[in-house]
């Protein structure tokens, strides 16, 4: 069989086409919780629109070059008894052409790139909107609202349509603050206070995750961002500012006693309005109102709380709580249950 130009042309279209089709069919899943194809805020939109510009430019370049290349492979097989082909050493005009052409494409791509870049990274001195201080720890997130007087952990609330400036601090290693559907990430670096602005345009619950390798439990350092309507946000702030709700049931009262006493939870955790003033672990004043526990890795329910309090090291290896719970502090299953009931009641 002598492959001729038609076969070569078909291969040149089909082979690169497989990759383009595979990319779009396999890759485009905007509904996934951390998909960057769904942008619900202006920063994410800028990045997504820019991605598509570059993606399609790259795809056109890919199809053309890969197509010509595949065509050449199929078009020019060696046949028996052929004389030596012309020993072409180059072509100056072609060289100049394919040096300048990509340069022009790149120059065109550079325009929207630089424009988006300054809109995202040029944070004005006067920060309009809401300010939130983020403090990343191995392996959880602390959120402080300096103007509202709210401190919480692993679940950040933001009002819809408002520009939010996150100031990022770390007291230990480097982390990276990332809420994919709202926008790209920014690293959280000790001795640097980076500022990133994000805005949520659709109320809803968004997934966040630490994106810079930060040690043993890096995979378990996630969080949630909740974009509220302004009314819901105000309600949330008011609730967060209130002291912790008192223990209601018998189990919760037992749990509270354990929390303050035998469990020694107060050494690390704060529950506003009580003697618990620890600052090593997350603030638990309203932990019952959060949707997840242990930095976004499990839904916040009784069963998971019991699991967590029984064996924090098994769920999140290397975390500080695991150095005491089950070691110097041993709790019975009943005590764990009571403690979980108390913690869950901290709405």
């Amino acid at each position: 069989m002598r492959p001729h130009w038609l076969l070569a042309l078909i291969a040149a279209i089909v082979l690169p086409g497989i990759f383009v089709a595979w990319m779009i069919w396999g890759g485009y899943e905007p509904n996934l919780p951390q998909s960057t194809f769904q942008a619900d805020g202006p920063v994410g939109k800028l990045q997504k629109d820019l991605f598509w510009i570059i993606f399609w430019s790259a795809t056109v370049i890919f199809v053309v070059i890969e197509g010509i290349f595949v065509y050449a492979i199929f078009r020019f097989p060696r046949r028996p008894n052929q004389p030596i082909p012309p020993q072409t050493h180059g072509h100056q005009t072609l060289e100049i052409g394919w040096t300048i052409a990509p340069a022009i494409v790149l120059a065109v791509v550079a325009v929207p790139t630089v424009s988006a870049l300054w809109q995202i990274y040029n944070v004005p001195e006067e920060k309009a909107g809401l300010a939130i201080e983020v403090r990343a720890h191995q392996w959880w997130w602390e959120f402080k609202y300096p103007n509202q007087g709210v401190v919480t952990a692993n679940e950040v609330h933001m009002p819809v349509g408002t520009r939010v400036h996150f100031t990022l601090h770390s007291d230990d290693v480097i982390h990276s603050f990332w809420i994919p559907k709202l926008g790209g990430k920014l690293d959280v670096i000790p001795n640097h206070s980076n500022v990133i602005w994000l805005q949520g345009d659709e109320p809803g619950e968004y997934y966040g995750q630490c994106a810079e390798f930060c040690g043993e439990a890096h995979a378990f350092m996630r969080f949630r961002a909740v974009v509220d309507t302004q009314a819901d946000f105000d309600k949330w702030v008011a609730a967060q500012k209130a002291p912790a709700s008192a223990a209601a049931t018998g189990a919760a009262t037992t749990g509270e006693a354990l929390f303050m006493g035998k469990g020694a939870c107060t050494a690390c955790h704060t529950v506003a309005g009580t003697n618990a003033k620890g600052v090593i672990g997350p603030n638990l004043t309203h932990v019952g109102s959060r949707t997840t526990i242990a930095a976004g890795i499990m839904p916040n329910d009784h069963e998971n709380l019991v699991k967590w309090l029984s064996d924090p090291g098994g769920i999140k290896p290397g975390n500080k709580m695991a150095t005491v719970i089950g070691k110097s502090i041993k709790l019975t299953p009943d005590e764990v249950g009571a403690l979980a009931t108390y913690v869950q009641g901290l709405k």
Partner: peptide, 14 residues
């Protein structure tokens, strides 16, 4: 080239 472009790289980095 796609992540040479720093604004969209913020979504791709790491």
């Amino acid at each position: 080239l796609m992540h040479a472009v720093s604004p969209s790289d913020a979504q791709q980095s790491d």
